[in-house]
Design a protein around this nucleic acid. Structure first.
Lengths: 157, 157
DNA sequence: CTTCCTGCAAAAGTTTTGCATTAAC
DNA sequence: GTTAATGCAAAACTTTTGCAGGAAG
């Protein structure tokens, strides 16, 4: 997690300039949306919450922001991708997502378990001859709302 | 992991019949391909290795096999999905995939770490009000071949 | 004033579906 | 004989790209 002396917007601008790109109004809006959401957002969601953003520009800008290391694209079981701020801006975390409605939220493991996991995965990666290995740990389940909707506790339907 | 008294094909047939579906020649072939591969296969790969399988039937059959609980669709960072035999047929495992070429292989954690992880994730899921939670732990890196190809150890390039 | 960004429309990619025919039970 | 599976083609879906006009540095 980056020091907070710089705002997220300043940091985004610096990283974009580093790859010869500009921090335009639309890119600022995207960062603002992702920053406020606090959990990964799909492009359909972004387009729905902000009418007036053309989808091709949103796809292109998110791809550029990913190249600059400001955002990250993640995959779930859904048919479309989701974007979130890069982990070095928000801290290492994992995802809990609902298999029914797609709701996604961030969760964090205790540092002790995370270290053990890292050590075990590093060993596995080394044995397989893999380099630059990172991990992705997600929880997939049914959120409370969807559980209520589809599996009521009494039988009155 | 299911007892081995039944072959994978018998088990597949039983599960398909349970959902009112038939175990046809093409479905048997798909199971055979996935079983021999030993790691998740994409549909393009399946179509390439077995000419004569129409893609719409492959998509449909894999979806039916997933409904019957025989195979599982997984997502990687690639643009298409991959299929593998269901975990209760092959045992719980994780995936190591190459971000460059897409090569995917199975890896297993030690039982001790897996138990700790399960316990921690169960707690997290309960606190978030999620039910029926399973986890997905993947390693993403650069395989040895791709590392050689793109980051040679000497500078003769 | 040069380079990059924007926005529209069209294309590319994977995945799904309609429908007539064929195969399984 | 009834129901489900097949295979072709066409559609739906997310995502990418070409290009002319506009904005940023």
């Amino acid at each position: 997690m980056i020091g907070s002396a710089r705002s997220i917007h300043d940091e985004a601008a610096v990283r974009l300039h580093g790859t010869g790109q500009r921090y335009t109004e639309q890119r600022r809006r995207l960062i603002e949306i992702l920053s406020r959401a606090g959990s990964p957002m799909s492009i359909p969601e972004i387009l729905r919450c902000r009418r007036g953003l053309p989808q091709s520009s949103v796809y292109r800008n998110l791809a550029d922001l990913e190249t600059a290391g400001v955002v990250r694209r993640i995959v779930t079981d859904e048919e479309f991708g989701r974007y979130e701020l890069n982990e070095d801006l928000t801290g290492h975390h994992h995802h809990l997502f609902c298999a029914v409605c797609g709701r996604t939220s961030d969760v964090r493991l205790g540092p002790h378990l995370e270290e053990q996991l890292d050590a075990a995965l590093d060993t596995i990666a080394r044995e397989a001859g893999f380099a630059d290995v990172r991990h992705r740990l997600d929880l997939i389940g049914t959120c409370a709302d969807c559980a209520r909707r589809f599996e009521p506790t009494d039988a009155t339907g």
